[in-house]
Computed example of a mutant assay.
Amino acid sequence: MGNTKSGAVSKELLQDLKISTKFSEAEITQWYENFQKQCPSGRITPAEFEAIYGRFFPESDAKSYAQHVFRSFDTNDDGTLDFREYIVALHMTSSGRMTLKLEWAFSLFDVDKNGYITKSEVCEICQAIFKLIPKEKVDDLPSDENTAEKRAEKLWGYFKKGDNDRVAEGEFIDGIMANADAMRLIQYEPTK
């Protein structure tokens, strides 16, 4: 859906994004202009995305997490992010609605995109999240969260599932919303 290399966002794309994101026309137009400056090809590659993510986590290894985030944003599975995918991702991750953020988090954890999360997928994402934590901050973590494995085990425990069970999106959202610790475990935000 519509990324042209011209300087203006198409009317069709603008209308679609206004409806699906609730961003204003002015906001979308401004983001489009900035996107075109930063990505003249109209697409963000995985390597470019990893570089952007690396700037947010300069003291960490953000590569594997960035790869998972990229996968969750690349909704048409073409290996790049176009403007539409970029804006929808921005909306999902920055909107005030917790359920929207958790829907995105579910897509992040659903590595194989089959509509369910398994314990092994939770372990894989927790490994990537753990790499975002600077080594000097790991010592400050609670003893039941100071490794990626312990973090994954604790998070999986909130869903009350066996090792071979799986979690659907609704269960994931309910399980995270029911426990502040679970919410903290699915992310890492660097201290400023």
Rank of each mutant, 00 (worst) to 15 (best):
F172I: 00
E50D: 14
D140C: 01
N34K: 12
F73G: 03
G96K: 04
T147M: 08
F70N: 02
T45L: 08
E136H: 15
A128G: 12
S72R: 09
P134V: 10
K11N: 15
C126D: 08
Y65W: 13
N164S: 14
I19E: 15
K137L: 07
F130K: 06
N146S: 08
V69D: 06
G7D: 12
D140N: 01
K135M: 06
K113C: 05
K18H: 04
L108D: 09
V122T: 12
F172G: 00
P58Y: 11
D16A: 08
T99E: 14
V167R: 03
K63T: 14
L102H: 01
P40W: 05
W104A: 02
L155Q: 10
V69I: 15
K18T: 10
C123T: 12
K63D: 09
D165E: 04
K18L: 13
G42I: 03
Y116C: 10
R184Q: 10
E48C: 06
L100D: 13
T29M: 13
S10W: 07
M98K: 01
R43W: 05
L108K: 06
P190L: 10
V167W: 02
A148Q: 05
L81W: 02
S60W: 06
K5C: 02
S64C: 08
T191W: 02
E33V: 07
A180D: 12
S143A: 14
L17S: 14
D16F: 10
A66G: 07
D174V: 01
N164C: 04
F83D: 06
Q15N: 13
W31T: 05
F109M: 11
A89D: 08
S95H: 09
D61P: 04
N146V: 01
K18R: 14
F106P: 07
D77W: 05
Y86M: 09
P142F: 01
T80S: 11
A8V: 09
F159Y: 09
M98W: 03
R55S: 11
L102T: 00
N3V: 11
G7H: 04
